[in-house]
Design a protein around this nucleic acid. Structure first.
Length: 736
DNA sequence: TTTCGAACAGTTTTT
DNA sequence: CTGTTCGAAA
């Protein structure tokens, strides 16, 4: 069954109800496999099924493609060349490994970036191209280089007993396709396979679905070609477009009724997505009323954008909680301005994405030690752990260690244990290496008999990690993160109590594999009373009563580097569409005329996507920073509807004072509708006035110099001390 | 030979 | 903000 389900039409509900129905008809849950896009979605689904059938769906396989594959590879470890304690390398681990592989085959890492080579290898793996096939088809220089690095990288991963993200899919497919017993086992076991967000599957994932369904053929996928936003990760829209051909006898169901958004929001979203050529024609409809028009606001810069957004959130607060507000943007870097503004007024918020918890330096450092206990072959973890805290082992020693290893064929840890026998190592370094290996060995003995948290505590103690962190600059925060990591282990163990794990790895090993596959969105708690900040990608599958989309500018949304071809531009448009359709009641889209990017302030122009918004459904606002004088009179806007975009091409910093009156609708015939209802309230700035600054927080005005746009104010901030600011740019608000 | 500070690079989206 | 690189000091 193929369910073509538009945004907000109840995709997930369909899957959940189908699983519940299967269970009610007597199918045991362990015979059902549900693949979701995030681990969180799997949890939510489990919970909802429990609500429908009255009990937990024990034994149901639900998770992401990656976590399901990791589980299969763990259970079937004996049939692979890795043990069940394998490490899962994230992108940075993988990049380090690629770099070492490049050194192994004498490719100059200055001339070729490990990052670029890794990306090529990743593409190849997702397309299921083997190293030898890749090398045979490589013609351009980067591909040739990649062709030589790829096999070396594969050898390195095997030696480290590690998989990268792509391997999890790839190796699971190989296992299923090439081992008849395995395929028949899983094919026979899974009477029903259900897949969410099918439009974002890549070739390897498609092959997985085919293999899982090889016995019963009961596949149910839901997806929406208009929400395909992972093309850059190898997602192939053909998977959904060719579904009927790949699975003969498919029933196709179309869901075009949207239960989420108001009429106005849906009008806008429909108009935007209609511009795409490569799509299945459909038109979402809603029975909800037209509702408030979609607000499109032009602001001066990202700070004005952020403070405008915060003020809008304030104005919604009587009817919505902060948890019902979502602020979405294209790039993680954009969160900064919003965070500053939110912190400035003390409004709770949470950022999803960016640097993930498990990617923090100190967390990765501790994880490297733990990884080594479970998987002593993991050289990447060895390098990381041996390098911190400093123990008198440097680059030269490590190089010699590697040379020594290439003559034996154990792991670096094995060689380190016998460091005293290695020629040419300084006595101090050899002693440190041997001690390190001995301590790791002793802790590893603890793994089978102690809980993972106990092992971690012991590890932190043995290697003096706590004191090493305490000695660091912001050691307190880092220490807190390590404590949180250990707390996470306790919670993980408690969660699993009573769950029978067929793959029976160590608790620590399972934890490590589990966190390697966690995304930030998995930790997201919608109940929290805080504004949510996240990228448009992370927002997929979510909904918010009140939504803000920032940075609707040409070059940012669509993002310049991503929109070089028509296909890429259409993917950017789908991304915008995904953002628009997250909104239930109120939707706001903002764009600015100047933005700090890549270190400099750059002039910005409204996104071409905005041209497609139907006038009757939107409410244009220009709420630049009118600024104020010490006397209190307000600036008046002079929107010039004849200024064209090209006139702005040559704008320099000197034009800045005019930015606020830049007319975003200048090229439109009907001209803009000015609305200053949301502009900053005018208020008297006088000595002693209590104010709040978006960045520096509350403060008291000491003195005012000059007036008009050049007026400056000296302000004593409660936290940051005295500062002199340009009033027109400061974005001050009255306190309280 | 190691360690450390300074300077510098890179920053699209993610499992 | 992190990781890398380079030179200098230990």
């Amino acid at each position: 069954m193929l369910v073509l389900a538009g945004a907000g039409s109840g995709k997930t509900r369909v899957l959940t109800a189908r699983i519940a129905r299967l269970m009610e008809d007597g199918l045991p849950p362990y015979r059902i496999l549900a693949v979701t896009f995030t681990n969180k979605a799997a949890d939510v689904m489990r919970h909802r099924i429990a609500g429908l059938v009255g009990h937990e769906p024990d034994g149901l396989w639900a998770g992401t493609f990656h976590s399901v594959c990791a589980r299969i590879l763990r259970i079937e470890a004996d049939r692979t060349d890795r043990t069940r304690g394998f490490t899962i390398y994230d992108e940075s681990d993988s990049q380090r490994a690629v770099k070492r592989a490049m050194e192994d085959v004498d490719v100059d890492p200055r001339r070729w970036s490990a990052k670029g080579v890794r990306a090529r290898i990743s593409d190849a793996k997702n397309a299921m191209v083997r190293p030898e096939e890749f090398a045979a088809a490589a013609f351009d220089p980067l591909s040739r280089v990649t062709g030589t690095v790829y096999p070396a990288y594969e050898r390195l991963l095997a030696r480290c007993n590690a998989y990268d993200f792509d391997d999890l899919l790839l190796r699971a497919v190989r296992l299923l396709e090439e081992d008849d017993e395995v395929r028949e086992h899983y094919g026979g076991r899974f009477a029903h396979v259900l897949v969410d967000e099918y439009q974002d599957t890549n070739h390897a994932q498609y092959r997985l679905v085919r293999a899982w369904a090889s016995v019963h053929g009961n596949v149910c996928v839901v997806g929406d070609d208009d929400q395909s936003i992972y093309g850059w990760r190898g997602a192939d829209l053909r998977n959904i477009l060719d579904f009927e051909r790949d699975f003969p006898g498919t029933a196709v169901v179309r869901l075009e009724q949207n239960y989420r958004s108001t009429g106005a929001i849906l009008n806008v979203a429909n108009a935007v997505i209609a511009r795409n050529r490569a799509r299945k024609e459909k038109r979402l409809r809603t029975e909800r009323s037209h509702g408030a028009r979609v607000v499109v606001a032009a602001l001066r810069d990202e700070r004005a954008e952020a403070s405008w957004t915060v003020r809008q959130v304030e104005s919604h607060r009587d009817r919505y909680t902060l948890g019902e507000v979502g602020v979405l943007y294209r790039t993680n870097a954009q969160s900064r301005a919003y965070e500053d503004a939110l912190r400035g007024v003390g409004m709770p918020y949470r950022v999803v994405g960016g640097i993930r918890f498990y990617e923090r330096r100190e967390v990765k450092d501790v994880l490297a030690y733990l990884q080594l206990l479970v998987n002593p072959a993991d050289d990447t973890a060895f390098f990381r752990a041996i390098g911190w805290p400093r123990r008198g082992v440097g680059a030269v020693t490590l190089e010699r260690l590697e040379t020594a290893r290439s003559r034996s064929d154990g792991s670096l840890l094995d060689v380190a244990a016998a460091a005293r026998q290695v020629e040419g190592l300084p006595a101090g370094a050899a002693r440190a290496l041997a001690l390190f290996a001995k301590d790791i060995g002793a802790l590893a003995d603890l793994v089978p008999v102690a809980s993972s948290a106990e092992v971690a505590e012991e590890c932190v103690r043995t290697f003096g990690l706590r004191s090493a962190l305490e000695a660091e600059e912001d050691g307190e925060d880092r220490l807190a993160n390590v404590d949180e990591l250990i707390a996470g282990m306790v919670a993980f163990a408690a969660d699993r109590r009573g769950v029978e794990e067929e793959s029976a790895g160590s608790e620590l090993g399972l934890f490590l594999q589990h966190v390697s596959l966690l995304s930030d969105i998995d930790q997201y708690d919608p109940e929290e009373g805080a504004v949510s900040l996240m990228t448009l990608h992370n927002a997929k599958g979510m909904e918010f009563p009140v939504v803000f989309i920032g940075g609707a500018e040409e070059g940012l949304l669509p993002l310049g580097r991503s929109a070089e071809t028509i296909e890429e531009l259409e993917e950017e448009r789908r991304l915008f569409y995904v953002g628009l359709t997250r909104a239930m009641d109120h939707l706001h889209v903002t764009h600015v005329s100047r933005r700090f990017r890549a270190g400099t302030s750059m002039p910005c122009f409204p996104s071409s996507f905005l041209d497609d918004l139907p006038d009757e459904a939107i409410d244009r606002r220009m709420s630049g920073s009118p600024g104020w004088r010490s006397g209190g009179s307000r600036f008046t806007a002079h929107g010039t509807s004849h200024e064209s975009r090209s006139a702005w091409a040559g704008s320099s910093d000197r034009d800045r004072s005019f930015d606020w009156r830049y007319d975003p609708a200048a090229t439109r015939d009907d001209g803009p509708v000015y609305d200053y209802s949301d502009s900053q309230e005018t208020f008297e700035l006088a000595c002693g006035t209590r104010i709040v600054h978006p960045r520096f927080g509350p403060g008291t005005v000491l003195s005012i110099m000059g007036d008009g746009r050049t007026a400056k104010a000296s302000i004593e901030f409660d936290l940051e001390g005295p500062k002199t600011l340009l009033v027109a740019h400061a974005g001050l608000r009255p306190a309280g």
